[in-house]
Design a binder for these strands. Structure first.
Length: 498
RNA sequence: GGCGCCAUAGAACAGUGGUUAGUUCGGGGGGCUCUCAAUCCCCAGACAGGGGUUCAAUUCCCCUUGGCGCUACCA
């Protein structure tokens, strides 16, 4: 048996956890759990200017919400702690010293102006912005004197003299060959003494014994070859790599803030279930062997296999996400969903009020409404909408109910006999009123619906009646009856003309 | 510009050297229903183009085109 699999997810806290990164985390997680490995959650906060505590917290919260659990890492600790790069500076120093000593890295005292100038002189065809290597062979004295004069410097990797092929056996794409001549002496340590991403991530992955690096394709060309060089020169074992296809927005460019909802927490706030997000993200690039699509996390873990991950980029389709959410909503119990609804009910004053006053009927209402719900947000929206019916005008649809006075009167008159104000009994009451008047089906429901909601369509009438409340329903029916009476049977003197 | 990755319907995925090229979302139509939704049924819609290899290419190879990505003292 091979050694135990160790994967990692290392976001940088320079923004909220977004869909693209979350998908990378998910694939790592599915792969890891499928093979019973260890999942490491690390934080890459060497960009001090942009990293914040709040973003880090957002990433942690989003991971928890998505149910992507880590075995080791931030807030949990573990054998390889610390898991924040800002706390690992001494470790990096140790390896940079090694590289410096072995002549595989060197100090570069070039000013940014100089480098800028070199760049402008770059000949066509060469890598734009490739470092000239000016400081590569500074004499010991030159270096000493620069150091003494406190000339700022960075530490660069010294590319091997002879160009060589860098071969990657990508678990998704197969064999991939790059050449070192496309690279330059990239920076390992910045002038402020903080290591750059490529250096820090390599040290972290190596020292944490990461066996599989699963990340986005955007790392494939530039970063992975550089890191492999570092692994080699430092004498580390090279992990397996798998580069995931990108997720694109509807305009087919890399998914970003421009595409609207971007952060995982945005979707949480829109009322999506983590189950749906995770299910949809997995299917963006991966496909199970069967035609099934709706899966729980456990089912995906069981089926997951990197060899079934696609190589081509995928467009994020909000409509399909909504469908997945609907599917997962269907699979949850009413009690569970009502619990999740709580934060969504809070924001709207009259919805909140209604929920507090109708603790006992809320479950029934939800039950009859749930087939209409795409997101958790939809429930309070319906409740709110039902309240608003009360305030809608009376002018529309008049003709359609002009002949329904007897029905409306009868319905109104018996309303007080309904023993309990819930959907079942109101449904019965509608039926029995219809029976009395020998009206049924469309002729029964439609006039009532219009009179009560002013709309021709909407969810089941009994639900609406329950939520609107008895008094509001009575008020509306009253007004309608009066309008119809005065229009059809106007009192003497009110008649127009003759 | 350089380099890399990618290419099956509007979107996401299957699939095969010989198939009526399959599934899901979305679109269109119909049944059910007071209506909407849900659900059920039906329909339209794809192998980017050009060269090879081959008896045969959507499938294998090359080129073109197109898309995306990388090209920082960001990660």
């Amino acid at each position: 048996m091979n050694k135990k699999i160790r994967v990692r997810f290392p976001p940088s806290p320079t923004g909220n956890l977004h869909i693209g990164n979350a998908r990378t985390a998910l694939f790592n997680y599915l792969f890891c759990r499928h093979h019973e490995g260890t999942f490491v959650f690390r934080i890459e906060d060497t960009d001090f200017a942009r990293s914040t505590e709040a973003f880090m917290q957002n990433e942690i919260d989003a991971m928890n919400w998505l149910q992507i659990h880590w075995d080791e890492g931030i807030q949990r600790g573990g054998e390889y702690a610390p898991y924040k790069q800002s706390e690992r500076l001494p470790i990096y120093r140790q390896y940079i010293d090694q590289l410096l000593k072995e002549g595989k890295a060197y100090r570069c005292f070039c000013s940014s102006e100089q480098i800028e100038q070199d760049r402008n002189e770059t000949v066509e065809g060469a890598m734009v912005g490739k470092y000239s290597g000016r400081c590569r062979h500074l004499s010991r004295q030159e270096t000493e004197s620069n150091l003494e004069r406190q000339v700022p410097f960075v530490i660069r990797y010294q590319l091997p003299e002879n160009t060589q092929d860098i071969v990657i056996q990508d678990l998704i794409r197969g064999k991939m060959v790059f050449t070192s001549s496309n690279l330059d002496d990239f920076i390992l340590v910045r002038s402020d003494g903080i290591p750059t991403y490529n250096f820090a991530v390599t040290i972290d992955d190596a020292t944490m014994n990461i066996t599989h690096v699963i990340r986005g394709e955007d790392h494939l060309f530039g970063n992975t070859p550089r890191q492999i060089l570092l692994y080699r020169d430092l004498g580390f074992e090279i992990p397996a790599f798998a580069h995931l296809p990108m997720i694109l927005g509807s305009d087919k460019t890399k998914l970003s803030k421009r595409h609207g909802a971007f952060a995982v927490t945005d979707y949480k706030e829109m009322g999506f279930l983590p189950d749906a997000i995770v299910n949809y993200m997995a299917l963006l690039g991966w496909s199970p062997k069967s035609n099934e699509e709706v899966f729980s996390m456990e089912e995906m873990i069981e089926r997951f296999d990197l060899s079934h991950v696609n190589v081509s980029p995928a467009v994020f389709d909000f409509e399909k996400l909504k469908w997945f959410n609907q599917q997962h909503m269907k699979r949850k119990s009413t009690a569970y969903l009502i619990e999740l609804e709580a934060p969504f009910m809070k924001d709207r004053a009259n919805v909140k009020k209604w929920a507090e006053e109708h603790q006992d009927s809320i479950e029934g209402v939800f039950e009859s409404l749930r087939k209409h719900l795409v997101t958790l947000q939809d429930f309070p929206e319906y409740i709110e909408q039902f309240h608003q019916y009360e305030h809608l005008g009376f002018k529309e649809h008049r003709e359609e109910i002009m002949d329904s006075l007897p029905l409306l009167e009868a319905f109104l008159a018996g309303l007080d006999t309904v023993p309990n104000w819930n959907t079942e009994e109101i449904s019965h009451y509608i039926q029995s009123t219809g029976q009395e008047l020998q009206i049924k089906g469309k002729n029964l429901y439609h006039p009532l619906r219009i009179a009560i909601t002013n709309e021709e369509q909407g969810p089941d009438l009994p639900v609406i009646i329950v939520v609107m409340g008895k008094q509001a329903v009575k008020n509306r029916l009253h007004r309608w009856c009066e309008i119809i009476r005065s229009t059809k049977y106007p009192a003497e003197g009110e008649k127009d003309g003759n």
